[in-house]
């Protein structure tokens, strides 16, 4: 059971949150200018790493804020919490 530090509300149990999947996925556009391949890539292809994963989470049962996590997908250790729109931080 993950303990996630919401940037606004502090550490809370995972049941208060919803994971929105990989973050930093760039939405291509405008629609007419996007190739089928580029669109498929955006829609479906995911890094899905075994290890550090940058992902976005919503504090759904709290402040309703979206934020980013850097989390290890094997140990589930959370290495960083950072706001939407910020670049992925470097961690040791």
């Amino acid at each position: 059971m993950l303990l996630i530090s919401c940037p606004h509300c502090g550490p809370r149990d995972e049941i208060e949150f919803r994971c929105g999947g990989e973050t930093h996925v760039v939405r291509p556009g405008p629609a007419e200018a996007v190739s089928e391949d580029a669109w498929a890539d955006y829609l479906f292809m995911r890094q899905n790493p075994r290890g550090l994963h940058a992902e976005r989470w919503l504090h759904a049962a709290g402040c309703r804020t979206w934020f980013n996590l850097l989390r290890d997908t094997v140990t589930h250790e959370i290495k960083a919490v950072y706001p939407m729109g910020h670049a992925r931080p470097e961690v040791a």
């Binding site: 059971m1 993950l2 149990d13 995972e14 049941i15 919803r18 994971c19 999947g21 990989e22 899905n48 075994r50 994963h53 992902e55 989390r71 997908t73 094997v74 140990t75 589930h76």
Partner: peptide, 13 residues
């Protein structure tokens, strides 16, 4: 558990 995971272990919730 609806978040990426390669951890083959049970979860309490």
């Amino acid at each position: 558990d609806l978040y990426n995971s390669y951890g083959q272990r049970g979860n309490l919730p």
